[in-house]
Structures are given as C-alpha cells and as structure tokens.
Write a protein that binds this DNA or RNA. Sequence first.
DNA 1: TTGACAAAACTAATACTATTAGTCAAAATA
DNA 2: TATTTTGACTAATAGTATTAGTTTTGTCAA
Lengths: 195, 195
Amino acid sequence: MPRAGLDADRVLDAAAQVADREGLGALTVARLAAELGVKPPSLYNHVQSLDALRDGLTRRGYRELLDVSRDAAAGRSGRDALHALAHAQRDYARAHPGLYAAMELPVAAQSEESRRIGGAYVNLILAVLRGYGHEGEDALHHVRVLRAALRGFVSLELGGGFGLPLGVDRSFEVLLDTLHAGLTLGGHAPRGENG
Amino acid sequence: MPRAGLDADRVLDAAAQVADREGLGALTVARLAAELGVKPPSLYNHVQSLDALRDGLTRRGYRELLDVSRDAAAGRSGRDALHALAHAQRDYARAHPGLYAAMELPVAAQSEESRRIGGAYVNLILAVLRGYGHEGEDALHHVRVLRAALRGFVSLELGGGFGLPLGVDRSFEVLLDTLHAGLTLGGHAPRGENG
DNA sequence: TTGACAAAACTAATACTATTAGTCAAAATA
DNA sequence: TATTTTGACTAATAGTATTAGTTTTGTCAA
C-alpha cells in the first residue's frame, strides 16, 4: 500500500477536472478514485462525503468566478462594466461547465466563506449599478435582476436549451443591450457616459 | 399478486406528485413503486427507464406551462402581456417545483412533441414581443432574453439563491420593469399603449 | 364456459452507487 | 530508535437502476 500523497486540495483539483471534462453527473467516488489511482474508500481520508466534495466545487467556482469578474470590471463603469462582467461570467461558465453546474445546485449550508464570497459578489454588482444611478434597496433588487438574467442565459446555453439556428453570441449581446436600456431607464444616471 | 391497475399515465401522475412534493431528486424507482403499492420491477411494464420517466415529466411540465401561459397572455398586449406571462410562469414553477426542475434538465432527445411545444412557446413569446415592435430575427433574440431572465429568476428563487432579507416579489417586479424598459427602448413600439 | 394468450405483477439476480469498520503499513514525531 | 498518527487497503452494508424468468391475472375467442 504505497501512499499516493493525496490531500484535500489535490482531491478537489481532480474533482474539478473530472466535472469540467465529463460533467458534474459523471463525478462519482469511483470515477474520482480511479482518476487519482486509488481505491474509492481511500478518498474518505480527505473528504467527508460526495456532497461535501460537491460543496467544495461550488465554493471554488464562486471564488474563481468572483476573481475573473473583478478583473473584468476593474477600471470600467456603466455599459462597459456591465459588458465586461457579463462576458467574464459567460466565458467562465463555458470554460468550467462542471464547476458552473455545481454553482447551480440548490444552496445548502451557507458556510462562513460562502457568505463572504456572496457578499463580495453582490458588492461588485452594486458597484456596476452605481454607474446607472441605482442605490440602496433599489440597487439590491437590480442585483437580483442581473444575477437572474445572466444565470438563466448561461444555464440555457450550457444545457442546450437554445435550439433555434440563431447565433447565441448575438443573443447575448441583445440581452446586454436590453439590460443596459432597462437599467438606464430605471436609474438616475449620475453620469451620462455610455449612452 | 393482484393487479394494481397501472398504466403509463397513472405512473407519470404519481411521479409528478412525488417530484413536486419531495423534489425531483427524491424520485427513485423504489420511492415511486412504494407510492403505487407495487414492487420496483413492476414499473418497467409501463415505463422504459427512469430517464424516460423524467423525460415524460419534462414534457408534461412544458405542456402545462404552455397552457397556463397562453391563458394568462390571452387578450393582453404590451406590458400587461409581459406581466401576465411572467407571473404565470413563476406561479407555475412554485406550484410544481418538481416538474419545473425536470424542465431545467439538460435537453436530451428532442422528440416530435417537444419540438411542437417548444415552437408554440416561442410563438407565444413572439406575440408578446410584437407589441413592443420586435419582429423577425431581432424578435427571436429577444425570445431568448425573456426566457433567460425568467428561467434564471425562478431557478434562483426555487434553489434558495436569493439570500438577502429582501422581498422576492418586489425583485420580480423590478425584473419585469427592467425588461419592459429594455424591450421598449430596443423595439419600434407600434402602439403607444402601456408606456 | 372453457381454453388460449397477452399483460402485469412477482422473485431473484446483477452491477452499479456511497459509505463504514477494521487492518496494516508508511510517514511523522518523540 | 520507538511510538504515534496518518493513509491506503479489504470486506461488508445498504442503497440505486435494471434484466431475466416465472406465475398469475384479466381478456378474448371458440
């Protein structure tokens, strides 16, 4: 029984790879153990359960998504910021369909880290919304609007829900145009930049 | 071995009830067999597989959703139609979370009926969009915009993704306001009614 | 009314799933 | 070097979907 040198991080790395390559549904204990050259029960030395592992994927996904979203939105405002943020999310989901699927799972425990990341993400969107003149409670409602629109679009795209022979890239731009127009009309528009 | 008098429809009815009450994930062959007072293998006289059963739930959900959406939108146009259509969908999803979850599954085969229902659903949204002056390919992109926004919102709501202590009903109205404004600005607005 | 046949329920078995308990060796520590 | 902790193992359990083969029930025809 030579040791494989596993730890929780390496297991999570492998889980993310399997989920992204073969789908979250293909992530089984047996599949993951095979990937790591080990027998299934050995994984329980590093992970509490498959549910806990999926939860780890969810948190990793949110962390990475927050990172790329921050980078994308940095130094932009108004329509530019919205565009950059939205594309960062869509691009991330397409590059990491397994992790994104894990983020779509019904929320479970709400750990400390999850709340922290969720809060940071909300703040990022709030910053974009400030450029449209949305503040306070009104802005929080619009955070949900943006989250819903982006989540729904990406979820439909990844799930093959767009059946018509019509360019999805163009549809995404139309979505962003619609959101931009709606946000502009609903807010006070402190600065006139970007339409 | 007295006969239970099952057929494909009764099995699908029971499956829908279990899925709506206990969640789509709770719908197992054993659970469904117990619900119908029968042993698990007996179900295979009426259903090809669990996957096929879930597919049946998906189709039933789309059929019912199309019905309530049609009724809701009938006789309305513009903002009224958008409002009615959106609320019909949200209400249906909350009344039938199991069936709605089945509709969120990645699309599989695309049967004849699925294409027919999908087409009818697209036509229904197109009719609403005509009130905003959207036609042709532009309208088809906006169908995706509406689908995405509604799907994302309902998915987040049902999945517990809205964590903030903030009224979800109000957020939904804000979403509709935003979409209405965006659709109005983007289209040619053939009739001035409803703002 | 009986005889034949088809449909539906069953039992038994297979191959998967996650998971736990208990064992032994390897690595880390005293 | 001795001890303790850690990690991988084997074996086993209980769940999952599913198939094969058997028996019984209901239907339809003679």
